[in-house]
């Protein structure tokens, strides 16, 4: 029983994204950021996007290309401190930014991917982060309701994929990738190496193929994936 071949041309994969889409991006800093998929999104120029990503990358990288190109309406994130443009655009009112505590962002995404509606946590109680969220009693403890966070598209970066969409990540390039891969209606994975089915041993699969819709093989890695000179 062969498994479906999900490999796809990059331009074709990104062309599925319409204006106004909600898009999750993998990555924490450089590792795990799907730079080639983002670059293609910039080339095609879809507008009014909601971007959900841990951070806004740095000047001249990833999310910053989308900001510079005026494609982002809203950013749902935990930290934008390494991107002065993102902070400036937020404070000028040119984009709206929703800050979410990093682990709550991860859990809200995981929750959507796992088919749950939400969860109760005590993180941020007594701070701005809890404002407007319903208070919930669980036994003798009280917390706030956090809702699941899903998206239309997830753009994932993997070290290895097989043609069915099983994925393996490398070191800290894992981060949000396996979570967003589960949480979107359409998940597009770029991979440094695309293997035949069985190329990743079953025990080594981090994201199982059923979560992944399209697999894009990366050409030779460009400099942006490399070690950053600061």
């Amino acid at each position: 029983m062969p498994l479906l071949d999900k490999t796809c041309d990059m331009a074709e994969a990104i062309a599925r994204i319409p204006d106004g889409a909600r898009i999750m991006l993998g990555g924490f800093g450089v590792p795990g950021t799907p730079f080639c998929l983002i670059r293609e999104l910039v080339r095609q120029g879809q507008k009014g996007l909601t971007i959900i990503k841990n951070d806004a990358n740095e000047t001249g990288m990833g999310v910053d290309w989308l900001l510079e190109n005026g494609q982002v309406a809203r950013l749902i994130t935990s930290h934008i401190g390494l991107n002065p443009r993102a902070m400036q655009m937020m404070n000028d009112g040119r984009i709206s930014v929703e800050f979410v505590p990093q682990g709550i962002l991860a859990e809200r995404i995981r929750c959507a991917g796992a088919g749950m509606l939400g969860f109760v946590s005590d993180i941020g109680v007594g701070t701005l982060m809890a404002e407007g969220k319903p208070e919930v009693r669980v036994g003798d403890r009280s917390g706030i309701l956090e809702t699941a966070l899903g998206a239309d598209f997830a753009l994932v970066h993997a070290a290895d994929a097989d043609t069915f969409g099983n994925l393996r990540y490398a070191a800290t390039a894992c981060n949000f990738n396996p979570l967003i891969a589960m949480a979107a209606k359409t998940t597009i994975a770029e991979a440094e190496t695309v293997l035949a089915p069985g190329g990743i041993a079953p025990d080594d699969v981090h994201t199982p193929g059923p979560f992944v819709d399209l697999v894009v093989a990366l050409p030779e890695l460009s400099e942006v994936y490399g070690v950053v000179e600061r």
Partner: peptide, 17 residues
């Protein structure tokens, strides 16, 4: 607010837990 808006990253959970 309005001046330096880096966001908390993981600090809220670290500080609380």
């Amino acid at each position: 607010p309005g001046r330096l808006t880096p966001g908390a990253g993981g600090a809220i959970e670290l500080a609380q837990k």
